[in-house]
Nucleic acid binder design. Structure first.
Length: 475
RNA sequence: GGGCCGCUAGCUCACCAGGUAGAGCACCGCCCUUUUAAGGCGGGGGUAGCAGGUUCAAGUCCUGCGCGGCCUACCA
């Protein structure tokens, strides 16, 4: 891909308009939405939009005009608009933005068309649009120049409209349940709330390093202490890790917390939210993702995390040798320095998770990998936590929140022992102090919005649901 | 980070036994007043991602680099 240079022809055209005394970049124009016109089908109309096609026929021409709401054909006749406007028209190109006034009629083929009586150039396009038939296919250009992707590829626009719709539906659902939407800091003095490498930035006036948040969790739970019983945030988190079809360095998460609830109630909430959205988007509780039908009719499958290991023949999930043998049996690549949790995660992500096509709650994760979750009363090694898998993708993570400050401090200290330079860990004393004031028992839920949008728009890459995914700069 | 693939006109793509670059759309000129991938005739436009190498000769073969895609490794 090379930076294209504005051609002599295109410069000549700009000059042509200027010489005519017409500003090629116009101003406010009173327009109707094309969609409305297509609905009403009659009368004098005024529209504005981008010229997507021109078919000239001697001293007449057809144009396709498209705006945010739709696309309509316009017909131009020299003997109606007169010589001067006809000359102007000859200096329009595909891609120009114009305002048009005219009257609706139907062509011989019964196509609703605007008979142009007057038009005005509102913005000159100096670069030729991608090819009208094949459109813009180059994936790199589609991501780098998303505006072209949106102009040329109708489906792409729909994906982002659906994304916005999903976000409104989530807010609508939670607001109706008396949840309060809040905004918490994006810049954190201490890394917390998840296991991930953070981005580091610096505040000059305070002369301190700050971390872009990897999760909002600890701030949202401070709000539980403050008496907000149902809170949520939908916003970006940042993780300084690899980029893939499932990972973008900045991504959007929903985190919701509900006081006096627990993990089990978060399962209900998760089911309700998803079904609410899916029914509003699809009008039913199932849809196709990547050629597989996914059915959200309740009850959704539930499986205990500990039972997963029994099912594949591991008697003691915390028996390192037994787990390692299984990993070897599966021909998984291991380096030797993994602990038992690493190996379990490896087996899970390679061999187990991909099988959970239908919505599946995996319930009861070990304490060691769940530092913010409350343990079961009768089993201190396992926490009241679930992850939801759909089509092999981890979509949600939730648990009963640990609200015991003494226990939380111990857990933090264990985490600090696992810290690496890449993944700094600090005991968040301020958070411990917050818990010391008393946090109500609560359930917390996190949903990866981008992945959910992927599922609901049948997108195979996270880049297809993020308007401007991070790409390397071209040098 | 590793593996595979791609990068040719603004866009979509050809040419690939190495012989000095083509088509369609877009753009320009002429003809055409109900087309819709409108049509007809003519025209302009390319340091073939970048840098080396092999060769009489490289878009084509080799090496390195850049960017991207897919797979793979870690976080959601």
């Amino acid at each position: 891909m090379s930076e294209n240079i504005i051609s002599q022809e295109q410069k000549r055209k700009i000059d042509w308009w200027k010489e005519k005394g017409i500003e090629p970049y116009g101003r406010k124009f009173l327009k109707q939405d094309i969609y409305q016109i297509l609905e009403n089908q009659t009368g004098e109309v005024s529209i504005a939009g981008r010229i997507m096609g021109i078919r000239k026929h001697g001293k007449a021409a057809f144009c396709d005009i498209s705006d945010a709401s739709g696309k309509i054909q316009a017909y131009l006749k020299k003997d109606i608009i007169g010589e001067p406007l006809w000359e102007n028209f000859k200096n329009l190109d595909i891609g120009d933005i114009v305002g048009i006034q005219g009257e609706l009629f139907k062509t011989h083929t019964e196509q609703l068309t605007i008979l142009i009586k007057n038009f005005i150039l509102l913005s000159k396009n100096l670069r030729s649009l991608p090819e009208k038939w094949h459109g813009l296919k180059d994936i790199e250009i589609r991501y780098r120049k998303r505006y072209l992707d949106l102009i040329m590829n109708h489906d792409v626009k729909n994906i982002f409209i659906t994304r916005t719709k999903i976000l409104s539906l989530i807010r609508e659902f939670l607001n109706n349940k008396n949840f309060i939407e809040v905004e918490t800091p994006m810049m954190h003095p201490i890394v917390g709330g998840a296991q991930a490498k953070p981005f580091i930035t610096h505040h000059n006036a305070l002369d301190i390093d700050l971390y872009l948040r990897i999760a909002p969790e600890l701030y949202l739970k401070r709000l539980l202490v403050g008496g907000m019983e149902n809170v949520y945030e939908i916003n970006r988190s940042f993780r300084n890790e690899g980029i893939s079809t499932l990972h973008n360095p900045e991504f959007t998460m929903l985190e919701a917390y509900s006081a006096y609830k627990d993990c089990e109630e978060m399962i209900n909430l998760t089911e309700e939210i998803l079904i609410y959205i899916i029914e509003k988007i699809y009008g039913k509780t199932e849809f196709i993702y990547q050629e597989k039908n996914i059915n959200f009719q309740k009850p959704w499958k539930r499986i205990l995390w500990t039972d997963i290991w029994k099912e594949i023949g591991i008697n003691q999930w915390d028996n390192y040798q037994e787990v390692k043998n299984k990993a070897i049996e599966y021909h998984l690549e291991i380096e030797g320095n993994e602990n038992v949790y690493d190996l379990l995660d490896l087996i899970f992500s390679k061999k187990i998770q991909t099988q959970f096509i239908q919505p599946t709650f995996v319930i009861g994760y070990p304490k060691e990998i769940s530092p913010l979750a409350k343990s079961y009363k009768d089993n201190p090694d396992i926490t009241e936590r679930f992850e939801l898998y759909i089509s092999g993708l981890e979509v949600a993570n939730a648990y009963s929140e640990l609200n015991d400050p003494v226990e939380q401090e111990k857990r933090f200290q264990e985490e600090v022992k696992k810290a690496t330079p890449d993944r700094p860990k600090t005991v968040d004393q301020d958070y411990i102090e917050t818990l010391e004031y008393g946090m109500p028992p609560a359930g917390g839920l996190g949903i990866g919005i981008d992945r959910m949008v992927m599922l609901l728009t049948n997108s195979s890459s996270i880049r297809d649901v993020i308007l401007f995914p991070l790409l390397k700069q071209k040098t």
